[in-house]
Write a protein that binds this DNA or RNA. Structure first.
Ligand SMILES: NC(=O)c1ccc[n+]([C@@H]2O[C@H](COP(=O)([O-])OP(=O)(O)OC[C@H]3O[C@@H](n4cnc5c(N)ncnc54)[C@H](O)[C@@H]3O)[C@@H](O)[C@H]2O)c1
Ligand SMILES: NC(=O)c1ccc[n+]([C@@H]2O[C@H](COP(=O)([O-])OP(=O)(O)OC[C@H]3O[C@@H](n4cnc5c(N)ncnc54)[C@H](O)[C@@H]3O)[C@@H](O)[C@H]2O)c1
Lengths: 229, 229
DNA sequence: ACACATTTGTGCAAAAAAGCACAAATCCTC
DNA sequence: GAGGATTTGTGCTTTTTTGCACAAATGTGT
């Protein structure tokens, strides 16, 4: 698991879905979207499991936590199941994302076209570099390109307020990540995706997921080393 | 866990370190490097745990699987522990990485300077786009910049053989990811980092770690939705 | 040399996750 | 409409991971 959620609890009227299950729902959702695009109407747990790389038993148990949306002897309706997952995950409406740090990675994320189709919209870019502030960056792939202005770090709070961003992405160097995170939190952001290779301390109630690409390579290297004859 | 290892087993003369532990070692390694840079000599499990966001008990248990490298009543020697982890993870020598797909993301990865300091060297770039093949791309950050030629997909096997690459990065569109993966495996690559949002099927003995950024956002969105009053 | 404060390493318990196996529900065929 | 073939949903078991608590080992001060 190249990433982790810290904190966040909130007891629920909702029946509580395990973290392991939640982490797999996006893969199911994506496979279902793919099947829907291919105009497939029904899918079995076996087939969907193969597409997502999990066991069919685990898939069924995961889905059973959302509700009983399959039909025994038949399988699941692709569109219906996809809708149920998207509703459960809050993907039926768009999420606004602010990216802090418009370097190699921040720019790649902004350019990326795949977020829009998955319910995310990059609404603001923020950087500390004077030479970047005020410049425009193309956001989104062909079809839906938008040009976004790079805002000054000092405007962070205003930008978040104006755009109503709910998700924050930290793509600054490691040194600045904690400071940026603190300001995001102070501005009301409670969900942060962090690419900087440092642990972010955040108050109770704020979720951080960390994506550490070098760690991923290191984990691969560890296993690779053990494969040597 | 935004990522998973599939397959790979290999019983070991080595004492077997749990997957959960392995996934945390890179964070310990990084924190130790940071402490070493700050010229700190010793560190307690409590302090290192705080830096990496785990409990001190878990940290100690993780480290105990590598050996008994601490001193009771004192703590751990920063440099010594760092060396032990790097040795265990195979970071005492460099790993050669081939990146397939030199688009937004592939280019960002190539430009990134942080891999070199963590034991990875991007040695080859491969793409299918005729307009990209033959062009040069700057690799690594200031100080250690190298220009790499973008090779044709048809040369993949040769490039891997010549550069002795052991790790493969898939940064192509989802459509092509499985095909690319198959060719990497056929060319001898047994460790793949996949950015395309699809599950890759690989033979026994090949490890795949998947980094799915949209999934990460979706998981955040799921929790964010539940926070609403 | 001895009491005392500190901090590791680890046995054991608890919790979470994964896997198994099968009854229950549905569809299809005759 | 009865019987057989599927395929889901789930109780139960096994494995993995996390957390707790404390004995063992070290350093310190007197
Ligand atoms: N590029 C990659 O492939 C890659 C891979 C792994 C990890 N990372 C991590 O992702 C982060 C970004 O990487 P990158 O390659 O885009 O770096 P980069 O240096 O290209 O970009 C960083 C950007 O952040 C801006 N910045 C610096 N301090 C800031 C602050 N306080 N507030 C706002 N913006 C600030 C800089 O002006 C710059 O534009 C780094 O932490 C890096 O370690 C990147
Ligand atoms: N850019 C992001 O921030 C981002 C975020 C999430 C996921 N991803 C995923 O990462 C992958 C790459 O994203 P991107 O934004 O860099 O896409 P991109 O379209 O910018 O780049 C893809 C590159 O792959 C090349 N390519 C296509 N088919 C190929 C083949 N068969 N062999 C070799 N090269 C081939 C293309 O020529 C292109 O250069 C995609 O699967 C995307 O879904 C990217």
């Amino acid at each position: 698991m190249p990433s982790k959620v810290s904190s966040s609890s909130k007891d629920g009227n909702s029946p509580k879905i395990s973290e392991a299950t939640v982490s797999r729902l996006p893969a199911y959702y994506r496979a279902l979207s793919q099947l829907a695009d291919a105009a497939q109407v029904r899918v079995s747990s076996e087939e969907l499991a193969a597409l997502t790389g999990v066991s069919s038993a685990m898939l069924r148990k995961d889905l059973s936590h959302l509700g009983s949306y399959g039909t025994r002897g038949v399988g699941y309706e692709v569109e219906f199941l996809r809708y149920q997952i998207s509703r459960e995950m809050g993907l039926n409406h768009d999420w606004s994302v602010v990216i802090v740090g418009v370097g190699n990675l921040g720019r790649a994320l902004a350019h990326y076209g795949g977020f829009g189709s998955r319910g995310f919209r990059v609404v603001a870019l923020v950087d500390a570099d004077q030479t970047l502030i005020g410049t425009k960056v193309k956001c989104g792939a062909e079809g839906k390109t938008v040009e976004l202005l790079v805002h000054a770090l000092s405007d962070l709070e205003d930008v978040i307020k104006e755009t109503n961003a709910r998700l924050g992405v930290v793509a600054t160097p490691a040194d600045s990540a904690q400071v940026v995170s603190d300001r995001l939190v102070k501005a009301g952001i409670r969900s942060i995706l962090n690419f900087a290779p440092v642990h972010l301390s955040v108050p109770e109630g704020v979720d951080v997921r960390k994506v550490d690409l070098a760690s991923e390579l290191q984990i691969l290297a560890f296993h690779e080393q053990r494969k040597a004859v």
